[in-house]
Simulated assay, not measured.
Amino acid sequence: MTNRVLIVGGRGRIGSSVAQDLVTHTDAEITITGRDPNGSLPPELPPDRSRYLALNLADSAALQQAVSSSNLVVHCAGPFHYRDASVLKTCIEAGVNYADVSDSRSFTRRALELRETAKNAGVTAIINTGIFPGVSNSMVRRDIEKLDTAEQVHLSYVVGGSGGAGVTVMRTTFLGLQTPFEALIDGKMQQIKPYTDRETIDFPEPYGKTGVYWFDMPEAITLPETFPVKTVVTKFGTSPDLYNHLTWFVAKYWPDSWLKNPSVIEFLSYVSYGMTAVSNNFSGVGVAVRSQVTGLKNGKPTKVRSTALHPNAATATGIGTGSIAQLMLEGKLAKPGVWSVEQALSTELFERAMQSRNLNIDQVCV
């Protein structure tokens, strides 16, 4: 029987990138959803294997029907700061496997609370499956496995301009400035203010030395749960560097009431997206991820460092999620429960998936 994949929010740049990856690497039939009753398939998707379905996530009956007609559901309808776990709950009730591109701590916690429920239902649910979080999680796992003991994880990300994605990515950035968050530092959870403590990281070209700042990411809670490390750092930056300084200014000086006002978030998002329409021409829309794990190897202090680079951040997200979805459809990734990527995906399967998609990840020990 032909596999049927439902991509919730598939009309967006991220969702359509996931759909393209699945069309390329599987024989599945793809249904993408959107809120527009008059919507249609993106032109890059083949009409013989794809169809469009108008779906409002608030319509629980319609959601249940769409989920029940599928073998796998991929949730791409962000920003996930605004989402509850209703899609995941519907999948568990219907006995349908699930993956998502979520990047929100609050959403991640809500999803992980359903681990035992999904396990009892025999449903495999993999969350945070894009490029970061997602590929980044597997990079950390791969680095940790090179050491005898891992003590510190330092994750850094940089995105060029809009990253080839839509205005939703801008919303996610500004939503991430709203509240302080907890991070594991030297074995203790500490309160961190977003977009502080600028650090210069040497990324692969074309980014080179780029400033990154503390940013709330799901890896900050799932990696300490998975590995017995003492510190997990997650930092994010953009190119060109002007955007970093502007975002830092907003995070530091704008009143909390402004940052928590939906109208202000929309204003900032659309202004920023308009600016990237110009800057994309020279910054590109790519992404670089760097993982550095510090620990011991044969009794000696050792750092294992990995870097991944792709010219389009939205496409890279599609690769991360599409590879997970492919493995689930093929029955190679079956672990009932709700899991982050590093908790479910072996390094062997990860390396094979990246090689099949020509996403090279360099790794060195220093």
Rank of each mutant, 00 (worst) to 15 (best):
M1P: 08
M1A: 05
K260C: 04
G187M: 12
G337M: 04
F267V: 01
P133N: 07
F215G: 00
I265W: 04
T238Y: 13
G274N: 07
R11W: 08
D241V: 08
S162F: 09
Y213T: 03
S17D: 11
L88H: 05
P79A: 00
L223V: 14
E44W: 03
D59Q: 09
G176F: 00
A313H: 07
L57E: 11
K209H: 08
L246T: 09
G331R: 04
S291G: 07
K119M: 11
A150T: 01
T2K: 15
N281D: 14
G237L: 06
M328C: 08
N244H: 03
V18S: 06
L155N: 02
E44N: 12
A334V: 15
K146A: 05
S239K: 14
L57V: 12
A118G: 02
E116S: 06
F181S: 10
T173W: 14
P262V: 06
D36A: 10
S306P: 06
I32E: 06
N38C: 07
E151M: 09
R198H: 03
F132R: 09
G286H: 14
L114M: 03
V23W: 12
S60I: 05
T247E: 12
A277N: 08
S323G: 01
I30G: 06
L327E: 07
A66C: 02
E44P: 06
I131E: 09
I185C: 09
F249H: 13
H245G: 07
K332M: 04
K297A: 02
G122Y: 10
S68L: 00
Q292S: 14
P204T: 06
G164H: 05
N261D: 14
N358G: 02
I201L: 04
V278T: 13
T321C: 15
W258M: 12
E113T: 14
W258I: 13
P180W: 00
W258F: 15
G78T: 13
A353L: 02
N56T: 13
N56E: 13
S106I: 01
V250Q: 04
V366A: 09
E351Q: 13
L333Q: 04
D143L: 04
G78E: 05
T173Y: 07
D21V: 06
T317E: 02
I127K: 12
R141G: 05
N120R: 15
S86P: 09
R35D: 06
K119E: 15
G160S: 05
E113Y: 01
V366I: 11
P194G: 08
H310W: 15
I14A: 10
M275K: 04
W248N: 14
A85D: 15
T222Q: 12
I192W: 06
D59Y: 03
N3C: 02
Y52D: 01
V341L: 12
K300P: 01
M1F: 06
T347E: 01
R357A: 12
L41Q: 12
L349G: 00
K193N: 11
